[in-house]
Design a protein around this nucleic acid. Structure first.
Lengths: 159, 159
DNA sequence: ATTAGTTGCTAAGTTAGTTAGCGATTGTAC
DNA sequence: GTACAATCGCTAACTAACTTAGCAACTAAT
């Protein structure tokens, strides 16, 4: 006998855009997994490198971003240092801290893996008009906001 | 000195929709991580359950979908059986195979975690017109196709 | 000056993956 | 029909990446 949640989803009519949205998230996850494998990295390493390429971070900041313990973050940074992808540097003002900085060679190697995806998506994006892109952006921003809200609040069943 | 890939991305103009697209993929990844944690599952378990809720699968099929070894797939199914989420059943025609079937309670528990996301995205989707949704779907399908193509072909640097 | 909190690490342990190999079974070639 | 190849799903031994607990050095707050 199906429970209430199963009954809900059985009767649920999903639009093409909604199905495509969920499939995109799943495809993005799979591609990241494939890229990590090609790069010889774990997915955590890949995500960490993507963040570090934006700006240097401390291991504790990285731990918070990746939602892992500081011990795990230390280990992860150790492995990225071993590969020559990043370097640890002393913090200018706070002697407790270090700054993890991506090396030039690390950045180049990461981009060699990520660029095909950037280029492919850029090409798709360029094939839409400004008006169309505005609609798409509004939809995607709405989806991002909805998902982000769920990250921080517990589901209704926890009451 | 920046390499060629770094120089490319430095000069790269990204549109709002392109930035939103990449941020959506990242937010989807984070939310899946959070949902897995809340459910007390690893991300592999969560992905496996999502697939099994669509249709029963054999451990070897699951291994291919998840891109893990059959040994890992066996272990994963073992743990899902231990939690009462799935059951193994003999295959009707092929005595080598088993079918992994989601239990009613497993399905209910998974949906309790996933439903808030479904509902939130459904609500967003409903706030767009048919014409707008058509544009969004075309964009998302294009993005999915582009990403799927990259899963199967090596990047240009491997030549 | 003292207390509270943060940073980043080590140690010991756990989880979930890997590779190698195997028996049972099915599929293919002859 | 027989022999061989391929597939399925598992076990064993090992590895990678995480966890919790705890610590010294340092900064923030009082």
């Amino acid at each position: 006998m199906a429970g209430p949640a199963s009954s809900f989803t059985e009767g649920w009519q999903q639009t093409g855009s909604l199905l495509a949205l969920r499939e995109l998230i799943e495809t993005g996850r799979r591609l990241r997994h494939v890229i990590a494998r090609r790069a010889g990295l774990s997915e955590s390493h890949l995500v960490a490198m993507e963040h570090l390429m934006r700006a240097p971070l401390g291991p504790a900041e990285l731990a918070r971003i990746l939602d892992v313990s500081t011990a795990a973050s230390t280990g992860l940074v150790d492995r990225l240092v071993q590969r020559g992808h990043v370097e640890r540097e002393a913090h200018e003002q706070d002697r407790r801290r270090t700054q993890v900085q991506v090396t030039d060679s690390g950045r180049e190697e990461m981009l060699a893996h990520l660029l095909p995806m950037f280029v492919a998506l850029d090409r798709l994006d360029a094939s839409f008009s400004d008006e169309e892109r505005a609609v798409v952006e509004r939809y995607l921003r709405g989806a991002i906001a909805a998902l982000q809200q769920l990250e921080t609040q517990p589901p209704p069943s926890e009451a």
